[in-house]
Design a protein around this nucleic acid. Structure first.
Length: 852
RNA sequence: GGGCGCAUAGCUCAGUUGGCUAGAGCGCUUCCCUUACAAGGAAGAUGUCGGGGGUUCGAGUCCCUCUGCGCCCACCA
């Protein structure tokens, strides 16, 4: 047991206790206990993007309080940590950090030195490097980033078990990801298909529906006249993408639109390119938009894809995977006219086409500027295009109403905190319009574990993929060779070829419960932790991480992956705008830890209601610091009475015989109610309510109860009376320290160490003392004490000044309570004499001593 | 257009099944070096609970409606 310091301080306690916890392994998961005694957490693996921000601190703190509460309640807590280091975010960071880009056609350079390490100049042109070189840089950078992440999470005092650590690019993740996918293929839940796909032209990869976001962009309506074929007159359409004119395959209007009804079945000619295209009808065409008739291009947007598919139209693609106009004109398109735009970017092509249309007299009237929403990849910089490509999909209900219903029901198996977040899930699942695209034409991710046989022309036979055995996983099809083939058959007719793609990052992180729980690798562990008790995460990734995890678990285990999902809110800056890195208004967590202390920052985080967007507030951190400081000081005070009375927390202590004073029992009865409330709150994942109730009691305890009984504890009325007060103080202190432990882990551990052995974080969560005290008894006593204080304040006297006489008139019931607390009151208020009078109304007369 | 959330003191927010005079912190005012704490303590002021209607003995709380703000989804010619 440590000595109580003369001057308690919060300074430096984080490092000391973090090290001690690590040394003692107090957060280690005990894998020997039965499932009912396990509390397992599907920790979000943060994207390793180089910096941690307050959003991380905020939500991880919430989860940590739950973990700590469950641990103290006797559960063996499975609290792993992972880093989401695969995928595009890392690739993008590597590109920006080293000033390179991956170009698989480049040869490998042994010992390659990147042009920069950190912050290449803006103008720098990315150096193309080979895929293996690029992957080496990815591995190098995530190692650096992950060290920083781990340091911060340790500073934050997260009670994770670092022995259960994973990375989403790691071997275990690749194996789990590939294994699940092979089983998806086997059961028909995964398939590949050649189809129009949303495509990011900068990252040059397909992206999924869940990764889209709309951004308002300036655009312009161009009115273009299409001459009727074999007849006079023209049909005018409005388009925001005149550069796609060469990709036009039809014009479309609503079937009930009288203006165009007569034209259905006829044809018109595209200006400039002279292609004869039909005029068709479809319900998706909106009569009040533009001129009511639109040109269908392959492909300008998602509606084009629908029209193309449902109306069985031909294909005239002109946009390449790099976003530029393809070099060769599609069938029927005037090659000479097309040649003027071939190779241009969409923007350049638009300028050229508008110019040519104007010259040809086909552009009607003025171009009208508008703002309109355009689809972007959420991490992308330029609008998405739609290109046709072969991709792998996992069924998610987007094309199957029964599956959709099933997945909504899975969501219903989970208890949501707060409950209304479930609507977002339902909303998303019910609105899906396609299966989940999991393949990415990228590099740093688990490879899609598939080869294809090559026919005699050297073309891959996609319908007959060659699959590895599960025992061979993880594999890299660009290196490993499928069964029945030899390495020299790679890429030759009659041989094989590896699928070049990798999984989308969500396709792997959707396996987080299986990865962390070592699915199929440690069945004993997995059975003890799965399904997990809790999935904590941000509400912004319900449609991605949460939903995709449910999809995988539904297919593999026919059940929801967890019992509870806790969704945390956003951090807003003090102006109540969403905080973001790009705005440059992010304060670094480490700086705040240094300035206010970790507990203070955690206090700010845990004072926010679950799921509620919360303003960043250093003021709130100062309040937290004050609280933590107070806890140290009041601990010092209570423990200053010596060890005999404060062997507190010992379960066999005979409270009932020692704590005899009704005032003390009243305080403990109040505390019992607070224990019950805080326990119920934590059971309901409401750390904020637990904090609020505990804190409210704590300040009352310090300001009123402690002041009231201080004199008695100093033996103003003899040993027995003192023992009652001291024991009650110590008992309450033990309870308070334990109730604050999940919230303020450092300050509580510090104060606990002064008088207890072992970590407070391994101590038992308090249970009510259940003495027969009257919780309300002390209230009138405190009320009178407050009146006395007020009288002194109004007389501008010190609280220490004495009172000659105090006369209290009160109803009979209150008088009994006051009689019980009378002696304490005299001590606390330096009151010479008290007279208690029976009366209807409550009244106090305070006669202060003459000051000399 | 569909869904969800929010609106309580100058600010940030509590107020759980409807129940005494609506609370806290910050900020503000006044006072106090008091041996747990001056990075502290004591006391005080501050509200048409967004508007309107309804249910009820009783509504910040339940129902309807309107207004404003935010988020998610859909729409993208």
């Amino acid at each position: 047991m440590a000595k109580i310091p003369d001057k308690p301080t919060l300074d430096g306690i984080e490092a000391r206790w973090a090290d001690q916890w690590d040394t003692d392994g107090i957060y280690r998961f005990d894998a020997s206990v039965p499932r009912e005694q396990v509390f397992s957490i599907d920790t979000p693996p943060p994207t390793v993007s180089g910096s941690l921000h307050m959003g991380h601190v905020f939500s991880y703190t919430h989860t940590d309080t739950i973990a700590r509460y469950q641990r103290m309640s006797g559960k063996s807590v499975f609290y792993p940590m992972g880093w989401d280091d695969n995928g595009l975010p890392t690739e993008r960071r590597v590109q920006n950090y080293y000033g390179v880009r991956c170009d698989p056609s480049q040869p490998y350079h042994d010992g390659f030195e990147p042009p920069f390490r950190g912050d290449p100049p803006k103008k720098h042109h990315a150096v193309p490097i080979s895929r293996p070189n690029f992957l080496e840089l990815c591995a190098e950078l995530i190692e650096i980033d992950e060290k920083i992440f781990e340091e911060l999470f340790r500073r934050l005092g997260l009670s994770v078990d670092w022995n259960h650590h994973y990375t989403t690019i790691g071997e275990r993740s690749r194996r789990a990801s590939q294994r699940a996918f092979l089983r998806n293929i086997d059961r028909g839940e995964a398939y590949s298909q050649e189809a129009p796909t949303l495509w990011d032209i900068d990252f040059r990869t397909a992206v999924a529906q869940a990764e889209l976001e709309d951004r308002d962009r300036p655009g312009a309506y161009h009115k273009i006249a299409f001459q009727r074929a074999g007849a006079d007159g023209a049909i005018e359409i409005d388009t925001t993408r005149p550069e796609l004119l060469a990709a036009c395959v039809a014009l479309v209007a609503h079937p009930d639109d009288d203006r165009y009804r007569a034209s259905f079945g006829t044809t018109v000619r595209t200006p400039l390119y002279g292609v004869e295209v039909p005029v068709v009808a479809h319900e998706l065409a909106e009569p009040d938009k533009g001129t009511g008739i639109a040109m269908i291009c392959t492909f300008g947007d998602a509606t084009d894809v629908t029209w193309w598919r449902e109306l069985d139209l031909p294909m005239r693609p002109i946009i390449g995977r790099d976003g530029r106009i393809l070099p060769d004109a599609p069938d029927d398109v005037d090659a000479e006219a097309y040649g003027t735009i071939a190779g241009l970017s969409a923007k350049q092509a638009q300028r050229a086409v508008v110019e040519q249309l104007t010259e040809a007299g086909a552009l009607i009237g003025d171009v009208r500027a508008i703002q309109h929403p355009v689809k972007f990849y959420e991490r992308g910089e330029r609008p998405l295009e739609i290109v046709t490509s072969r991709q792998w999909y996992i069924r998610n209900g987007g094309r199957d109403a029964d599956l959709r219903t099933q997945l909504v029901a899975r969501g219903g198996e989970v208890t949501w905190h707060p409950a209304h977040m479930q609507h977002r899930y339902d909303n998303w699942v019910e609105g899906l319009n396609g299966d989940w695209l999991v393949s990415r034409q990228r590099f740093f991710g688990p490879p899609i574990p598939v080869w294809y046989p090559l026919d005699e022309d050297g073309e891959p036979i996609h319908d007959e993929p060659l699959l590895p055995a599960e025992s061979e996983l993880p594999i890299d099809p660009s290196i490993d060779v499928p069964d029945g083939y030899t390495a020299d058959q790679r890429g030759v007719p009659g041989g094989f070829v590896g699928d070049p793609d990798v999984f989308d990052t969500w396709a792997t992180s959707s396996m987080s419960p299986e990865i962390a729980g070592r699915w199929e690798e440690d069945p004993d562990l997995f059975d003890r932790v799965f399904p997990m008790d809790l999935r904590p995460q941000g509400h912004d990734i319900i449609r991605t991480w949460l939903f995709s995890t449910v999809v995988r678990s539904n297919f593999e285990f026919d059940q929801a992956p967890w019992r509870h999902a806790a969704l945390s809110g956003w951090i807003l800056d003090p102006d109540r705008k969403k905080m973001s890195k790009s705005k440059g208004n992010v304060v670094t967590p480490l700086d705040l830890f240094d300035r206010h202390g970790t507990d203070a920052v955690r206090y700010w985080a845990t004072s926010a209601r679950p799921g509620v967007d919360t303003a960043f507030s250093e003021d709130q951190m100062k309040v937290g610091r004050k609280l933590a400081n107070k806890l140290l000081n009041v601990s010092k005070f209570v423990l200053g009475f010596g060890d005999a009375e404060v062997s507190g927390g010992a379960p066999d202590r005979d409270l009932a015989n020692v704590v005899t004073d009704p005032v003390d029992r009243s305080m403990l009865a109040k505390l019992d109610a607070v224990i019950a409330e805080a326990t119920a709150a934590f059971e309901d994942y409401d750390y904020a309510r637990a904090l609020e109730r505990t804190e409210e009691f704590f300040w009352w305890f310090c300001d009123n109860y402690v002041e009231l009984v201080k004199g008695r504890a100093y033996e103003s009325r003899g040993a027995d009376a003192a023992a009652s007060a001291r024991t009650a103080l110590a008992d309450a202190l033990s309870t308070i320290q334990r109730m604050f432990a999940p919230l303020l882990p450092f300050a509580t551990e510090e104060a606990w160490s002064w008088w207890q052995s072992g970590s407070v974080h391994r101590a038992a969560w308090p249970i009510p003392s259940a003495l027969d005290g009257d919780p309300d008894l002390v209230d009138p006593v405190i009320e009178v004490l407050t009146r006395v204080r007020r009288a002194k304040t109004e007389a501008k006297q010190s609280q220490r000044s004495s009172v000659d006489h105090l006369a209290v008139t009160a109803p009979t019931a209150a008088l009994a309570a006051l009689a019980a607390g009378q002696a304490d009151l005299c001590d606390a208020g330096s009151i010479g004499a008290i007279s208690l009078l029976d009366g209807d109304a409550f009244d106090c007369t305070v006669i202060l001593s003459e000051t000399t």
